[in-house]
């Protein structure tokens, strides 16, 4: 019974992916993509990974979906209907090799991977055992949080840096002209709903952050929910993107600053980089996570809100802003 469900789920996932790639217009593709994300969240549940299910639903399906819809909405009708498996608007050169080569390479990739999965040797090292062994010393009870914020916290530090770099690039891309966006449709019902729904969303976000130390949840999932709440507010017409620039910057970087400061200050006591003193490890991790949640929420939100406003595309070169 379970296996049948899994098989169906897997096939649905593949069909959904095909739908994303070959649906007629892009809006449909985005909807399929969101459905793909939700199905994938189910798959994570089946794979015994509730953390990933949370993250996938909030980030993979939710935020990415919103980002994509926003982008598609700005395309002109002609470009949004740009048909799938064509080669270009010019429609030129449907050469034989350009059709056979992709099929051929996709088949090769699939066969190679099939073999790699099928004839997999048994791993000589078992990290889960090591994680379970060291879990009591990590300061948290949830193994995934322990891996993310203690055993492999260096990865997480760099990951926050990756997020920050994305925001910096977004800021750099923002046109200098900062005229306020005109007429964010202030729909009374949407407005009312978001005013009532955002507080519980924030509560859920904080709960998930807090739960992360002993059960599925943590900074990333909590941050994603925070970001979703902010996106919601923006869409409902609350002018929250007009935060003071300097305040926003500090908010964005706060998690990273705290993380880096804690990581470095332990070295004064002669400990290695990113070590938490055992007596306060749990508290320190929670503190870092709380700051990270706040920053991640802001970062993900500003990746959405910093997007260039809908400018009518100019095909002539005069639209170029080379003068700077």
């Amino acid at each position: 019974m379970n296996l049948a469900f899994d098989v169906l789920l897997g096939i649905a996932l593949l069909l959904c992916a095909a739908g994303v790639f070959y649906s007629r217009d892009l809006f449909r593709a985005v909807v399929m993509f969101i459905a793909f994300g939700l199905l994938l969240a189910l798959v994570w549940v089946r794979l015994d990974a509730p953390d990933l299910a949370l993250a996938e639903a909030a980030i993979g399906a939710g935020l990415t979906g919103v980002l994509m819809i926003d982008a598609v909405a700005h395309l002109s009708a002609k470009n949004a209907h740009h048909q799938g498996a064509q080669f270009d608007q010019t429609g030129a050169r449907p050469q034989l090799w350009s059709r056979i080569l992709p099929v051929f390479s996709a088949v090769i990739i699939f066969i190679l991977l099939l073999g790699a999965i099928w004839w997999r040797p048994d791993a000589p090292v078992s990290l889960p055992d090591l994680v379970a062994e060291s879990l009591p010393e990590s300061g948290v009870e949830h193994p995934i949080t322990a891996v993310l914020l203690n055993f492999r916290s260096y990865d997480t530090l760099l990951e926050i840096a990756v997020l920050l770099v994305a925001v910096v690039v977004a800021m750099a891309l923002k046109p200098d002209t900062s005229e306020p966006e005109a007429g964010n449709s202030k729909d009374p019902i949407l407005h009312g709903l978001s005013a009532r729904l955002v507080p519980p969303m924030l509560v859920v976000g904080v709960y998930i952050l807090w739960a992360g130390s002993y059960m599925p949840g943590g900074a990333f999932q909590g941050g994603a929910i925070l970001a979703a709440a902010l996106v919601f507010l923006k869409l409902a017409g609350f002018g929250i993107e007009r935060l003071a620039d300097s305040l926003l910057r500090i908010g964005l970087a706060l998690g990273f600053i705290v993380f880096l400061t804690v990581a470095t200050s332990v070295m004064i006591g002669g400990r290695p980089f990113l070590t938490y003193p055992e007596s306060v490890a749990g508290e320190l991790i929670f503190f870092i996570e709380a700051m990270l949640t706040f920053s991640i929420g802001l970062i993900l939100f500003s990746l959405f809100s910093q997007a260039p406003p809908p400018v009518a595309p100019t095909s002539s070169l005069q639209g170029e802003q080379d003068e700077r």
């Binding site: 990974a49 953390d51 990933l52 993250a55 996938e56 980030i59 993979g60 935020l63 990415t64 980002l67 994509m68 990290l127 889960p128 994680v131 193994p143 995934i144 322990a146 891996v147 993310l148 492999r152 990865d155 997480t156 990951e159 990756v162 997020l163 994305a166 690039v169 977004a170 990333f220 991640i296 993900l300 990746l303 959405f304």
Partner: peptide
């Protein structure tokens, strides 16, 4: 838990790549 944690990192990196 290790690959699960890695994938969590991967999901976040993927969304920032998409946004970028």
């Amino acid at each position: 838990p290790v690959p699960q944690a890695l994938v969590l990192t991967g999901i976040v990196v993927a969304v920032s790549a998409t946004a970028l």
